[in-house]
């Protein structure tokens, strides 16, 4: 299967790989996994006082499309508020990366990672 140029770019030069301290109250951590392929994704957001995402990091163990989807998401969420970030849809990610139908679940994984991170932040700061 041929990967799109954008996928290859993110795969070869992933943006924002790494992590933050998950116990820090300003850090939102989203952990998700795709049972179908065994991919695991960790997305962490550094949230400022006004609810704006100042920084984002990811670590993904999976195929090129899963890595590209999470790398792209870290770029997209920066500067957005948490409420804006959760409006990012998997279809936007799939379209941007030109993912083939069999790789759509990778973009779903990235969308769910954002939601899981936001849920984590809300439960931490409730």
């Amino acid at each position: 299967m041929a990967y799109s140029e954008k996928v290859i770019d993110h795969y070869e030069n992933p943006r924002n790989v790494g992590g933050f301290d998950k116990n820090d109250p300003t850090i939102a951590t989203g952990m998700v996994g795709a049972p179908a392929c065994g991919d695991v994704m960790k997305l962490q957001l550094k949230v400022g006082e006004n609810g704006v995402i100042e920084d984002a990091k990811f670590k993904t163990y999976g195929c090129g499309s899963a890595i590209a989807s999470s790398s792209l998401v870290t770029e997209w969420v920066k500067g957005k508020t948490l409420d804006e970030a959760v409006t990012i849809k998997n279809t936007d990610i799939a379209e941007e990366l030109a993912l083939p139908p069999v790789k759509i679940h990778c973009s779903i994984l990235a969308e769910d990672a954002i939601k899981a991170a936001v849920d984590d932040y809300k439960s931490k700061n409730a």
Partner: peptide, 22 residues
């Protein structure tokens, strides 16, 4: 049926362990 399932797994403790092993 679990075939063609696209639902993600969201069990932080289990996934954290997976991450560590990887």
């Amino acid at each position: 049926s679990l075939q063609h399932e696209t639902k993600t797994l969201q069990d932080p403790a289990f996934l954290m362990q997976q991450m560590e092993w990887r």
